[in-house]
Computed example of a mutant assay.
Amino acid sequence: MSSAAAFGYAPDALARILDRAPPVADAALRGDTRLTAPWGHGELHDYLHGMQGHVIITYYGEPQDIVWRVGKERLAGATRSGTITIIPEGHEGRWDIAGPIGVSHVFLSHERLAASAEQLNGGRPVELLGRVGFEDPVAARVMELLGRDAAAATDPAARLFVEQATDLLVTQLVRGHSSFGAIEPPARRGLADWQVRKVAGYMREHLDEPIGLDELAALAGLSRFHFCTAFRQATGSTPHAWLVNLRIERARQLLAHPELPVTEIALAVGYETPSSFAAAFRKITGVTPSAFRHQL
Rank of each mutant, 00 (worst) to 15 (best):
A10T: 13
P11E: 11
A13E: 14
A13H: 00
D19R: 05
R20K: 10
R20H: 08
V24M: 04
A27V: 10
A28R: 14
A37Y: 08
G40K: 03
H41M: 04
D46I: 02
L48C: 11
L48N: 00
H54A: 12
H54R: 00
T58F: 07
E62A: 10
E62V: 07
V67F: 06
W68C: 09
R69F: 04
V70M: 09
E73W: 07
A76E: 15
G77W: 08
G77D: 12
T83C: 15
I84M: 12
T85L: 05
T85F: 06
I87W: 03
P88T: 10
H91Y: 09
E92I: 05
W95G: 15
W95A: 14
P100N: 00
G102E: 00
S104Q: 13
H105A: 09
F107K: 04
F107R: 08
R112A: 14
A114F: 00
S116G: 03
Q119Y: 06
Q119H: 03
L120M: 09
N121M: 03
G123R: 01
P125N: 09
R131H: 11
V132E: 05
G133L: 07
F134E: 11
P137Q: 06
A139Y: 04
M143H: 13
L145C: 08
L146K: 04
T154I: 13
D155Q: 10
P156Q: 03
P156D: 10
A158D: 12
L160F: 05
F161L: 15
V162N: 00
E163K: 04
E163Q: 13
A165Y: 03
D167M: 07
L168N: 02
L169S: 12
T171H: 12
L173T: 06
S178W: 06
I183M: 14
P185D: 09
W194A: 12
Q195E: 15
K198E: 15
E205T: 07
L207C: 11
D208W: 01
D208K: 07
E209Q: 12
E215P: 05
L216E: 00
A217S: 11
L219T: 10
L222S: 02
F231N: 02
R232M: 13
G236V: 05
G236L: 06
G236A: 11
S237C: 06
H240Y: 11
V244K: 02
L246G: 02
R247F: 07
I248T: 13
A251L: 03
L254K: 02
L254D: 01
A256N: 00
T263S: 15
T263K: 14
I265F: 00
A266E: 05
L267M: 12
V269W: 01
Y271T: 07
E272H: 09
P274L: 06
F277E: 06
A279P: 00
F281C: 07
F281K: 08
R282C: 15
R282P: 01
K283L: 14
G286V: 03
V287S: 14
T288M: 05
S290Y: 01
H294A: 15
Q295I: 07
Q295P: 06
